[in-house]
Design a protein around this nucleic acid. Structure first.
Lengths: 316, 316
DNA sequence: CATAATGGTGACAGAATCTGTCATGGACTC
DNA sequence: GAGTCCATGACAGATTCTGTCACCATTATG
């Protein structure tokens, strides 16, 4: 086997079995130990982070950052990666920020000048707008890690109403919406699923109290949808065409929305009694684009609030 | 020079000068023509799309898709690329969609199984929500290309009011906002900058009428900010803490918002008379979180609308 | 402390690969 | 037809790679 091929395969092998002995590889590749040693040194020079310990139970290890075998990308593929990362520039405190920067840097370094120019000018020509918020969410990375590996975290959460409070949570998924990051998680304190706003999580650390993670297998991205309304109450409303368009922008609403052929629509769904204040504001915001049919409690609340507002706009 | 190094450098050289002769390279690298020929064949086997023509004025060429020299990425870098592309999955008809898919595929193929699992599970755990809209924008790619290279396009645009109409435009920048794609461009028909919604552009093609592109050098991402209000009228309002938070979500509002130390805020800005209907809805939506002080026309409009709504919620 | 396991280095001859040269040929332009 | 340019094969000589061996250093284990 020509040396170059062997080096490639070696890199793959080495990355797969992260601990190994020289003799092992020598047998596997049918070459001498000396050759493997020389090869490993070359890999090392090529950037594979190898570490070795001598003595019994010693051997080689690949340190964290495992390296993929070199891949040849086309120019367009590289540009598309720039495009994707560029799209995220308005998100602050993203996980993988450093990594994607260093990946892009590798691409950039290997590009001929004309493509660099193209990238640079693209940066000024394309943008993805997202409302930028104050709150940083420093613990996104740890939340994401916990969600992926289903670990329990101890977090200090400052909810709207209360002071900061410690709780154990097991994150299920993380999502960005309208400029904020949210984390759906099982809350061991409340014994149920809750949505946390990530910028309100002051601290997050792996749980040390030994709480066992639950088996949440198939919940995944299903968010608050899973939560069954408590004290359910039927909500029915008709929407004009414009009303439908506005509701489609609200993700939480989309699933309960039925759109008719002419573009108008209907909402018909059980909701929690406790959410009435929320729906009050929402339907007032929709103005004449929505007609609320049920429940009468909500109609009553809307009427009362409209009255109050009208009162405040009385004087010219 | 060891062969492996030479191959790398050859790949770079070959990508830089896209046309070349064997003799040329032989001189440059100080090896014989025969060797270069052998090397070129190897490059070819490695995926570089080389094409040669014999005879005078013949020579080698690198075809379309130029390839970058193989780059070794760390696992984390690869994962970060998946993360970035993942973030865009709710955008339909993106430019570079095919390219980023094929790039991710290359990463995926070279990954050890455990990282694949990690990626797969991340896909279910993280998301970027964006309102998804009906309209596709099939011509994003050509618009982007025109913006980057400052070319003139002939487009068929169906504006809100009118039927589809052909015009020549010179795109300046493309941006996504709230689920829609927009394109700021110089419009030769209207002789000024206009913002087009990309899903309303039915057709786009390179202009053939020979319209010369303008020198728009430094305009770039500046968008509608430039538009001075016509018939300006002063708008003043006070916002509660919650009102401020809600306003910050609105991108167009952020620049006219002043936030006080206690979290409350003020809006004070000249706006167009014609926008009153828009502000009416907006301030009604803010409910008791905003107190509008001026102008009285707007207060009047709000009062009228509140009255109408109240009327509709009269019956229990 | 002796022993065995394991990595690390240098030297050198023989094996394998790579390279230059030469020869030949084909295709194309002028 | 002369000149340019790529394509391929053969082969000897140059270069690089590999295996072997000798020896060292470190460290766990009995």
């Amino acid at each position: 086997m020509p040396k170059s091929k062997r080096l490639m395969e070696l890199m793959m092998t080495v990355n797969r079995k992260r601990r190994f002995k020289v003799q092992e590889l020598a047998d596997e590749f049918g070459v001498s130990k000396r050759t493997i040693l020389r090869d490993l040194q070359e890999l090392s020079e090529l950037g594979v982070p190898l570490y070795s310990e001598v003595g019994p139970h010693g051997g080689y290890q690949v340190l964290r950052e495992r390296v993929l075998p070199p891949i040849a990308f086309t120019e367009e593929e590289a540009v598309s990666m720039f495009f994707a990362v560029q799209a995220l520039r308005h998100y602050s405190s993203l996980p993988f920020e450093a990594e994607s920067a260093s990946a892009l840097n590798k691409f950039y370094l290997h590009m001929p000048g004309d493509v660099r120019d193209r990238i640079d000018s693209m940066k000024n020509r394309v943008d993805f707008l997202t409302p930028t918020r104050r709150g940083d969410a420093p613990c996104l990375a740890i939340l994401l890690d916990a969600a992926v590996h289903q670990k329990v975290l101890t977090v200090e959460y400052e909810s709207k109403e209360e002071e900061a409070k410690c709780r154990q949570i097991q994150p299920v998924c993380i999502y960005a919406h309208n400029g904020f990051w949210y984390c759906t998680a099982y809350c061991f304190l409340r014994q149920g699923y809750r949505v946390f706003r990530c910028d309100r999580i002051r601290e997050a650390a792996h749980d040390t109290s030994g709480t066992e993670p639950l088996e949440l297998g198939d919940i995944r991205l299903s968010r608050r949808d899973a939560a069954e309304p408590r004290e359910p109450i039927r909500l029915r409303a008709q929407l004009s065409r414009i009303g439908v368009q506005r509701c489609e922008a609200e993700l939480w609403l989309a699933p309960m929305l039925q759109v008719h052929a002419d573009g108008s629509g209907t909402i018909d769904r059980d909701v929690s009694q406790g959410d009435i204040p929320f729906y009050t504001d929402f339907f007032i915001g929709l103005g004449e684009e929505a007609v609320l049919l049920e429940p009468k409690e909500l109609r009553e609340a809307i009427r009362r609030k409209l009255g109050e507002m009208l009162e405040r706009y009385k004087g010219i």
